[in-house]
Amino acid sequence: MQVDPRGMRFAAAATTLVLALVLVTGNGWLLLAQAAVFALGAAGASPYALAFKRWVRPRLGPPAATEDSRPPRFAQGVGLVFALVGLIGFLAQAAPLALGATAAALLAAFLNAAFGFCLGCEMYLIIRRLLPATR
């Protein structure tokens, strides 16, 4: 599957905004909503990307190039893990855990939105290296 890279940047910007609001308001429900977005994104149905397709893309026209959807989907999965850790922090009222995990996800989303750098994708080989060889 191919995706519009501008939609990915748009989704990253929306994620950055939501996670920044989570930090400022300390609202765990908002993080839960973002976790749901990450889960949908990992399944290839990011609500932010859909919003881009529906409302923003018609104004911009077709993309100059498309990209493989697997890297961003993997990165959404990494984002989900951090969001879940953050939620555990909120539930356990462990502020450092809640803020730290949210900040990590925010950093990745910000790097993607501002620089087009996919931190979640970079995790792939590092995670793979740590796991024992399967073949």
Binding site: L23, A95, A103, L107
Partner: peptide, 9 residues
Amino acid sequence: AGWAVLCVT
């Protein structure tokens, strides 16, 4: 704390 974490991040 939230604002501080946001700014640092």
